[in-house]
Design a protein around this nucleic acid. Structure first.
Lengths: 197, 197
DNA sequence: GTCTATAGGCAGATAGAC
DNA sequence: GTCTATCTGCCTATAGAC
């Protein structure tokens, strides 16, 4: 876990470079469709060097999710600081997803949700935690919006939050295959529209 | 393609049994996380026997999607015959997805959408066709519902159809990881609620 | 149609030199 | 920290006997 912190501070660190390449490969191809050799090849390293930094593939996977989750939660904290209007917060939230999709990638944890049955227990827990963190943040924003009258929706804030996270992940998943970011934008707008009182 | 037809008529046919096992493995683990040996082992056959029926893995993959798409479109035709009310049709449509999830599986094409970048061009085209077929059918139902006043939604029927397909696929993807079918049901209900005038 | 046998390659992982 | 060298195992795929 110290390695994760260090990686955020020094972007030329080898461990960081490994995480960067591996992250992209997982987001594009999936956890079971990339190899240590793929990453090593891109960085001009050997297979063995990677194993020094991340002894096993599941450990690499857990480090990937940990870093991704920290970054994502950090982005949510920035949104909280930048906006007070709940609708603007949610708009910024969908923007995070759009940014990922724009780089031709799927959400890391969305991809890992597809690979879920083949993951180690450590990776599984981390994926679940990621989604629960997203839902908690979003539910809080929704609650705030309902309280101040800027948002309206049926059911509980948590249920609505779950529907939104599902909708965004599904829209990313399909938009990537269909080759149109427009499809994602349309789905995101649709989810936002449904929140207007 | 003749093999697909034959497979639907004779469920003891070896090709059919291969497709059955491979289909489940793809839906649970993903296309890159199952092997010919996995399928052969379950059926008490050898690797070589599978290659006789499906010479290469991409060809097996294309046969899987072809059969899945035929079955799914058949189910949509049955819905059209069974119901005339658009809302009931859509309820039955979400029921198809719920049935897949209930058997601990992800939608075949939703899973393949995650694996998309690693698929052959033939498989990619078949996945896209599957989603477009779904969207077309759903858009037609939505149009019918808007025309007869039983449904209301913002934007075009096709845009709404795409949002619904995305929402259902995303809900399946996440509900499977979170281990709660309830989550899917909740999301499906949410999508239906939004269609009421 | 299914088998045995096998090819050729790539996977994740380790030992030991530098 | 990174290398070379190597292990073991699994992968897709094929040849040829039955």
């Amino acid at each position: 876990m110290d390695r994760v912190k260090q990686a955020q501070e020094d972007s030329t660190d080898t461990a960081t470079q490994i995480l960067d390449v591996a992250e992209r490969l997982v987001q594009v191809r999936g956890f079971n469709a990339f190899s240590y050799a793929d990453v090593a090849g891109e960085l001009g390293l050997t297979n063995a060097a990677l194993h020094y930094h991340f002894p096993s593939k599941p450990e690499l996977g857990e480090a990937l999710i940990a870093r991704y989750a920290i970054r994502f939660m950090g982005a949510l904290a920035e949104i909280d600081e930048s906006f007070s209007d709940p609708l603007q917060k949610i708009d910024a939230y969908t923007g995070l997803y759009a940014g990922v999709l724009r780089s031709q990638r799927m959400c890391l944890c969305g991809m890992l949700a597809a690979d879920y049955e083949t993951l180690s227990t450590g990776m599984r827990g981390a994926v679940v935690d990621f989604f629960e963190g997203n839902e908690r943040w979003l539910a809080e924003v929704l609650k705030q919006g309902r309280d101040d009258g800027t948002l309206d929706f049926p059911g509980s804030p948590l249920e609505e939050a779950r529907s939104i996270v599902s909708g965004l992940e599904g829209a990313m998943l399909i938009a990537r295959s269909m080759g149109e970011i427009k499809r994602f934008k349309s789905a995101a707008t649709h989810l936002m529209t449904a929140l207007r009182p």
